[in-house]
Amino acid sequence: MRLALALLSMLALLGCTAPQMLEDQAAANLVVRNVTVDTAAIAGVAGRKLAFDVPPARINADLTQALARKLLPTPQGNADVRVTVTEVRLMSRMQEMMLGGASYVKGTLTVTDAKTGRQIVTPTKVFATSQRVRIGGPIGAAVAPSAQNDYRETIAGFAQNVLVRLSPRDNAIVAADSPAIKAGRVKLAP
């Protein structure tokens, strides 16, 4: 039974690859001006709450910082990114022991034109896991990261997911002087 659940978890995670939300050329010309995170809908971290309680204000600050590192906002940008967080769940020790899986952040992503306020990306659900998938059982629990590391990895995984969604595909043909290349969101193919 545990093996079946672990396999289902792995398949679900494999299906969670982040699709691009914009056409490659639109993504190549997207320059983020502001990143805003809203954590008003959550009470903090779920799952490991008793052992590791992170208030919404800290989640907001940490996620804003992680998104800013990935999206590289600039005052000359042409788009504003808003993320409304609906859940942050870290694997509890019991889940690690029994099922395995990954911690995750759920939210809604919206991108608007900085000048007109028109939506470039309509509100879209975003679900991203930490980059570390854990197996269930005593071995999985023994090698699991600390709550602090799990939290950091989960926040970083969400920021990476948003970056991928707003960037051209790696093999896309874009101009060498496109804003996405200048911002480091995509690299020129050799």
Rank of each mutant, 00 (worst) to 15 (best):
A4S: 10
L109I: 07
L166Q: 04
L72M: 10
D177A: 13
G100V: 04
A172P: 05
A114D: 09
I42S: 05
N78K: 04
R152L: 14
R48Y: 02
L90E: 04
E87P: 00
V54S: 11
I139V: 15
D113Q: 08
A180E: 04
D53G: 06
V126L: 10
T84C: 07
G100Y: 01
L3W: 08
R169E: 11
D38M: 07
A180S: 11
D113S: 06
R2S: 12
P145V: 09
A27Q: 00
M97K: 12
K182S: 11
L63M: 11
Q119W: 03
S92R: 03
M1G: 15
R48K: 13
A68H: 02
D38K: 08
R33E: 14
T108G: 04
A176S: 15
A12M: 11
Y151F: 08
L22F: 03
G136F: 03
L11T: 10
V121T: 05
S92K: 02
I135R: 10
M10K: 12
R2K: 13
I59V: 13
A26V: 15
A147W: 01
R169N: 10
T108Q: 12
V83D: 01
R48T: 08
F52S: 06
G77I: 05
M97E: 14
R165K: 10
A66K: 04
V105D: 02
P123M: 09
K49T: 14
Y104W: 11
R82K: 14
Q65K: 13
Y151K: 08
F127K: 05
C16I: 00
T154G: 01
